[in-house]
């Protein structure tokens, strides 16, 4: 007679999202990134309340005032002022809101169209897919900045137009990663099995395949966010993005460039806040990717 009852029943399996979080938590750098990112997001959401002044409020008596911690700095202007006497701290807060929200919209739009096109193209397959993907591949030989510059050149400068331009340039990447993921999945036996069971059309696409490529889309999404911020601010910097009175990180740097020597803080501080933001997004993005990749270790 056995002395012990069987102690190894089936393990309690976690819900995928729970399991994802369980794995993600163990990654210290990714958690650090998430912390910083949430902090930045909170600050930017609350920025109208936190910013001491209007973004375009000018203080004629305080042109090019140094940051508050330097010798000739003034306490009421934390990060100093620019050549028009505008408070840099307020401008960073309000400009960041513009940059980040535009970037998110851009990625969302690019993902929506790119993923849909990728899904349809790879699902239909055959000649249609061959032609579509070659056109997209051709399109990708144009460097992203050149594409978005051309779009802006035609539509004219402005925040909305630059957002359209960047999402236009970003579309092919979503198309490509979706298509690649689809092609991998469509080679797997479960797909053949589902087809033999009689599944077809929309059902096959949405119920059988889609859940298995969400990881790939999610990874592309998180990686694209930092690219979108960089590209939008680059256009802003070159003067094709947000036009005054709108404030935007790239535009702030573009305006400050001409007096960067006299007032280096007008370059340092907005740039550093950009760097920290993109850095934390990249840490989170890497964390998400690594978690998905190590997913098979989770039983």
């Amino acid at each position: 007679m056995a002395l012990y009852i069987d102690r190894y029943g089936e393990q309690q399996l976690m819900h995928p999202i729970q399991g994802f979080w369980h794995l993600y938590k163990t990654n210290n750098t990714a958690m650090f990134g998430l912390l910083i990112l949430s902090l930045i997001a909170l600050i930017l959401i609350l920025s109208p309340l936190l910013a001491p002044y209007e973004a375009n409020a000018q203080f004629i008596d305080a042109l090019l005032s140094s940051p508050s911690w330097s010798e000739n700095g003034r306490i009421e202007f934390l990060f100093g002022t620019d050549d028009l006497g505008r408070d840099i701290f307020s401008r960073i807060l309000i400009g960041g809101r513009t940059t980040l929200s535009t970037a998110m919209l851009v990625v969302f739009f690019a993902a929506l169209v790119g993923v849909l096109a990728g899904l349809i193209s790879s699902f239909i397959g055959g000649w249609f897919d061959k032609i579509t993907s070659s056109v997209i591949e051709l399109f990708m030989t144009f460097p992203s900045l050149i594409t978005s510059l051309l779009v802006v050149a035609i539509l004219g400068p402005g925040l909305v137009n630059s957002a359209i331009a960047v999402s236009f340039a970003m579309l092919p990447h979503f198309f490509k990663s979706t298509r690649n993921a689809m092609l991998t999945q469509m080679k797997k036996p479960y797909y053949a099995a589902a087809r033999l069971d009689g599944a077809r059309g929309i059902r096959l696409l949405t119920i059988t395949l889609l859940p298995n490529i969400t990881n790939a889309i999610f990874i592309q999404f998180s990686l694209s966010l930092s690219t979108a911020i960089l590209e939008i601010s680059t256009l802003g910097f070159l003067g094709f993005g947000a036009q005054s009175p709108l404030t935007e990180w790239g535009a702030i740097l573009g305006e400050s460039r001409s007096y960067s020597y006299q007032a280096p803080w007008t370059i340092w501080l907005p740039g550093l806040s950009m760097l920290v933001t993109i850095f934390s997004i990249n840490l989170v993005g890497d964390g998400i990717r690594e978690t998905f990749e190590s997913d098979h270790h989770l039983r």
Partner: peptide
């Protein structure tokens, strides 16, 4: 009886213990 335990649940003592008819 039973299954091979997962690596993080190897029993204390004789690893076969709970599955062994002679234990």
């Amino acid at each position: 009886k039973g299954n091979v335990p997962p690596a993080h649940k190897v029993p204390v003592g004789c690893p076969l213990g709970p599955r062994c008819p002679r234990a």
